[in-house]
Amino acid sequence: MQSIKVADYLNHRPVTFSVEMRVELAVEKLLQSGQPGGPVIDSNKRVVGFLSEQDCLRKMLEATYQNESHSVVGDVMTANPVCVKPEDSIVQIADKMTINKPKLYPVIDDEGRLLGVISRANVLLALDKHLHDTYLSGHRYV
């Protein structure tokens, strides 16, 4: 099971954001994508942060009370988010996801450039497929 890799299940076309993007535009992108968040990247596709629905919700609520908004993604994102590599084990990522809050991890190369994202749904799919394949081949878990 350790041989199931992130590279085999990641989303290669995630929604992404830039530091200077207005929060309202970022919210529109999140809503259209159906993702709970996404990586914030620089002009070289290096991951510099992560923007979640929760980050946006806080800022949008604040803007509603003030009846104005001038915020950009860089104001509300989480800097230096936890990222994973394509060669990482799905099992290890699943373990992280049971303890840590992120529902989605950016997947980066050795230079920190974004390759995609891996979500809880992607991890569940990988584990389900593996268990199904194992069951069909006659192996059972105790």
Rank of each mutant, 00 (worst) to 15 (best):
2 Q>L: 15
2 Q>G: 15
2 Q>P: 11
4 I>Y: 10
6 V>G: 08
8 D>L: 00
8 D>R: 01
8 D>S: 13
10 L>H: 07
11 N>T: 15
11 N>G: 06
13 R>C: 01
13 R>F: 06
17 F>S: 03
19 V>K: 12
21 M>P: 04
22 R>Y: 08
22 R>G: 03
22 R>S: 03
24 E>Y: 06
25 L>E: 13
28 E>L: 13
28 E>S: 11
29 K>N: 12
30 L>R: 10
30 L>E: 07
31 L>R: 15
32 Q>F: 09
33 S>Q: 11
34 G>I: 09
34 G>T: 02
34 G>P: 02
35 Q>W: 10
37 G>I: 03
39 P>I: 08
39 P>Q: 07
39 P>M: 09
42 D>T: 07
44 N>I: 03
44 N>M: 08
45 K>S: 13
45 K>R: 14
45 K>E: 14
46 R>F: 04
47 V>G: 01
48 V>H: 04
49 G>I: 08
50 F>H: 06
51 L>A: 04
51 L>Q: 01
52 S>T: 14
53 E>A: 07
55 D>P: 00
57 L>F: 15
57 L>K: 03
57 L>Q: 10
59 K>I: 13
61 L>V: 05
61 L>Q: 07
62 E>T: 11
63 A>T: 01
64 T>W: 08
65 Y>G: 04
67 N>D: 05
70 H>M: 06
70 H>V: 00
71 S>G: 12
71 S>E: 14
72 V>D: 04
74 G>W: 05
74 G>V: 07
77 M>G: 10
79 A>L: 07
80 N>Q: 11
81 P>W: 06
82 V>S: 00
83 C>S: 15
83 C>T: 15
83 C>W: 06
84 V>S: 08
85 K>R: 14
85 K>D: 01
86 P>D: 08
86 P>W: 05
87 E>A: 09
88 D>C: 09
92 Q>K: 12
92 Q>C: 01
93 I>R: 03
93 I>V: 15
94 A>P: 01
95 D>Q: 13
97 M>A: 02
97 M>E: 05
98 T>Y: 08
99 I>D: 10
103 K>T: 00
103 K>F: 01
103 K>C: 02
105 Y>L: 08
107 V>W: 04
107 V>G: 00
107 V>P: 00
108 I>Q: 00
108 I>Y: 04
110 D>R: 02
110 D>E: 13
112 G>E: 07
113 R>I: 01
113 R>S: 06
114 L>P: 08
114 L>H: 04
114 L>I: 13
116 G>W: 09
117 V>C: 11
120 R>H: 13
121 A>H: 08
125 L>Y: 11
125 L>S: 14
125 L>H: 13
126 A>C: 07
127 L>G: 03
128 D>W: 07
129 K>H: 02
129 K>L: 06
129 K>C: 00
129 K>T: 09
130 H>E: 14
132 H>S: 14
132 H>D: 11
133 D>T: 09
133 D>G: 05
134 T>Y: 11
135 Y>R: 14
135 Y>E: 12
135 Y>P: 04
135 Y>M: 12
136 L>Y: 03
137 S>V: 03
137 S>M: 08
138 G>L: 08
141 Y>G: 02
